[in-house]
Write a protein that binds this DNA or RNA. Structure first.
Length: 751
DNA sequence: GGTTTGAAACTTTTT
DNA sequence: GTTTCAAACC
């Protein structure tokens, strides 16, 4: 096998296959390349059965990319290598063995929303005043406990004496009991329960230890205590554990990432070999020098210094604008200019910021300038209300034990079942120790339920008939049936607002995700689909083949690279955040922010632009921020542009920057970007530009035809517009007036 | 039982 | 400035 493409430390890392290995891989130092070569080397040179190899990452996107590259290199047998995320690894193991812990193997996975709903219920039951003690606080306490592998019993023991902690322990215990009752796990449980399973069932652990003789972990600096324990258990027998990480890129402390997992790796595994990868293949020397000089201000890190033979490259552009609006404007114009001059495509550009809230201004600006863009993060597609409603139907049909899902949809659409009746059902269910859904089926038996039973019946009948349908029909047919029977889309159509329209488009998108799941899976099942959906992150949807500018937080950007990067909102108080500056352990918090800055700078391959605004609206109030301290840590000879800092923002006149002068000239001779029709349709949440699903099959009717609609009756087709992935049909109904609707859902019939 | 209105929170990052 | 949630009203 040819290892000549690798540099010396890379080759060393590939060839060190036995025993623990820590690869300290600086940003852009080719770690994925090392991992893929290492995998191929194990199989081809050492004759290791691919079945015994496992590679673990954090996101599906990273896993997918590694899978692809391994497949390319290894060829035969590569499909039996486990290349997955922590969470899906655990789900796969738990689906097989979780019955040993008293759960059903068809458990559901709760997202943040579900957790909050559940927590609300619990606080109510325990009579906790949520004005003083926030649900969020309890959830974060519980999450941290689970990250540290502390169960409710242990938590209670540790809480002894402390009134507040005892209350938290009560909530934790109750929360956990309720999850179990609903046969549900939250995200943290996936890891926690797998560790528990291994600790209580030596035979299960042993079988997985035998299977995974060679384990590789990517982004090791982001692992928390529970994930560390999981890996430790699996690797304990053969000790062939290779972890790759960069302590300078540890940015998930708030999520429980334990930086000591990497800093103390040699203590955990005494005979560990450590290899540093410091040659960077991504960026120019100027960008690396900037990154190095910023991160050098952190103490207690593993000393590393990135270098490259890519050459110095451009200086880093620094631009300070008067307001956040002008900042967005500047970035939009800069991108438009670079694209127009042919220097970059949209796809080459990324705008990175500290908080999701900053995305809005850029979005508005980009729409105005006709720049195609995609926002990563913010509200997850599957967390949208309409999607969660439909998912709750599917969950109820799949697994009646998820009370939360049933309660979510019992009145969607409105069935006139009131809170009082639902409370009676709940009480009855608790008394008889049955699921909420089971209790609904016995509605007649519930004392004092009265007329409500008659309203509950049709709902139960509907779910039962759908259950029967789910047995043999496809998921997409099932979903279609749900949408039709509940009138979900019809109701939105009737609403006619932009928001309703965008929800319909989301449902449309959801439907195509169902179809693509069915097409891409050997044996599609409803449970399988729900599981896949529960574990997707927003970043996973990023598509390398489309031409758009990507907007995202610095956190989401880790692991990605772009030729032309903008770091926006570099102001003290925003980045580093106000919280980190004022925190008790401010020094540590600032270090974490600095690592984030390091991640941001090192995303750039060729050109980096840093911007800041003197004035910015935060929560409806104008705030003045100084240029971020991180910018000042970059040697000025690397920067093009001055840091201008008046002592008092209110008194001194604003300096007119070169850019602003240029812009004034620019404005007097407006350049039109809008001569062509916009090639994109921004949707409120999933802003995607490619219309992946081609405009559906030809329509059976045309303008002027008479058509019939399920709900609105008969009417005349006034217009048909091909939009995005569907036709928008305007119909003048005899009784219901003029409506616009999408052809694929309206189910219009020519008459 | 459903709708409307006003207050309050939110903005640090998320698998 | 926006969104979410509860109380008051119909």
């Amino acid at each position: 096998m040819n290892l000549e493409m690798l540099n010396t430390p890379q080759r060393e890392a590939v060839e060190h296959t036995e025993g623990p290995l820590l690869i300290l891989a600086g940003a852009g130092s080719g770690k994925t390349r090392v991992l893929t070569h290492r995998t191929a080397y194990l199989i081809e040179e050492l004759g290791v059965n691919p079945y015994h190899i496992m590679a673990i990452t954090f996101t599906n996107k990273a896993a997918g990319e590694m899978r692809e590259r391994i497949d390319d290199m290894v060829g035969y047998g590569s499909e039996s290598i486990w290349v997955t995320t922590f969470h899906s690894t655990c789900v796969r193991i738990l689906r097989r063995y979780i019955d040993r812990l008293g759960y059903g193997t068809n458990f559901t996975i709760y997202d943040a929303d579900d957790q909050k709903t559940l927590m609300k219920e619990i606080c109510k039951r325990l009579e906790i005043d949520t004005k003083i003690y926030k649900e969020k606080m309890f959830l974060s306490v519980i999450s941290s406990a689970k990250d540290e592998l502390i169960d409710p019993i242990e938590f209670t023991t540790r809480a002894a004496g402390d009134y507040n902690k005892r209350r938290q322990a009560d909530v934790y215990r109750e929360y956990q009991a309720e999850l179990k009752k609903n046969n549900a796990l939250d995200f943290d449980d996936l890891i926690f329960k797998t560790v528990e399973l291994f600790k209580l069932n030596k035979d299960v652990l042993d079988s997985y230890q035998e299977r995974f003789r060679y384990i590789m972990v990517d982004e090791y600096q982001d692992t928390n205590t529970a994930q560390f324990e999981l890996i430790r258990l699996l690797a304990m027998k053969y000790k062939n554990l290779c972890v790759v990480g960069d302590d300078d890129q540890s940015i998930y402390k708030f999520r429980g990432a334990n930086i000591y997992n990497i800093l103390n790796f040699e203590k955990h595994f005494p005979d560990a070999k450590v290899i540093k990868l410091e040659q960077n293949y991504r960026s120019t020397q100027n960008i690396l020098d900037a990154a190095n000089s910023v991160i050098a201000n952190n103490v207690g890190r593993k000393e590393k210094s990135l270098w490259t033979d890519n050459g110095r490259g451009d200086k880093i552009t620094f631009e300070q604008l008067d307001s956040a609006y002008e900042e967005a404007d500047y970035v939009a114009r800069d991108i438009a200019g670079k694209v127009r001059r042919g220097e970059y495509t949209y796809h080459d550009c990324a705008v990175l910021y500290r908080t999701n809230a900053q995305s809005r201004l850029f979005e508005e600006r980009f729409i105005n300038s006709n720049i195609p863009y995609k926002i990563v993060g913010g509200v997850n597609f599957y967390a949208r209300r309409e999607i969660k409603d439909l998912l709750a139907y599917l969950k109820t049909i799949d697994n009646g034990r998820d009370d939360l899902a049933v309660k979510r949809i019992i009145n969607v659409p409105k069935r006139g079942i009131g809170a009082a009746s639902l409370a009676k059902v709940s009480d009855y269910a608790a008394e008889k120790e049955m699921d909420f859904y089971q209790a609904l089926r016995w509605a007649d038996e519930i004392p004092g339920i009265g007329r409500a039973a008659a309203k509950i019946k049709p709902f139960v009948l509907f779910i039962q008939s759908m259950k029967a349908r789910a047995e043999n029909g496809s998921i997409s047919e099932l979903l279609q049936k749900i949408i039709e029977e509940t009138g979900y889309v019809a109701e939105l159509e009737a609403e006619g607002t932009d928001e309703a329209q965008s929800r319909i488009e989301n449902i449309d998108e959801f439907m195509s995700k169902v179809v693509s799941y069915e097409e891409g899976t050997d044996e599609p099942t409803l449970s399988g689909f729900l599981e896949e959906v529960a574990l997707v992150a927003d970043i996973d949807g990023l598509d390398d083949n489309s031409d758009y500018v990507v907007l995202m937080t610095l956190h989401s950007a880790k692991g990605l690279e772009f030729p032309n990067v903008y770091l926006a909102g570099m102001e003290d108080g925003l980045f580093p955040s106000y919280m980190s500056i004022t925190a008790d352990n401010s020094d540590q918090e600032i270090e974490e922010e600095r690592r984030l800055a390091y991640v941001g700078i090192t995303r750039a391959k060729e050109h980096l632009t840093i911007t800041s605004a003197r004035m910015r609206m935060v929560r409806g109030q104008t705030q003045y921020g100084a240029v971020s301290r991180f910018v000042k840590e970059i040697p000025s000879e690397l920067l093009k542009g001055e840091i201008y800092e008046p002592k008092n923002y209110h008194d001194e006149p604003m300096q007119e920057s070169t850019y602003q002068k240029a812009r004034k000239a620019f404005r007097s001779t407006p350049v039109s970007y809008g001569s062509r029709t916009p090639q994109y349709t921004p949707v409120t949440n999933q802003r995607s530009f490619e219309s992946s699903n081609t405009t559906g099959a030809a329509l059976s009717y045309q303008v002027g035809d008479r058509v019939r609609h399920m709900k609105f009756g008969d009417g005349e087709v006034k217009a048909i517009v091909a939009g995005g992935r569907d036709y928008e049909v305007t119909v003048d109904f005899d009784k219901a007036g003029t409506k616009k609707m999408f052809s694929s859902f309206a189910k219009l019939k020519k008459i």
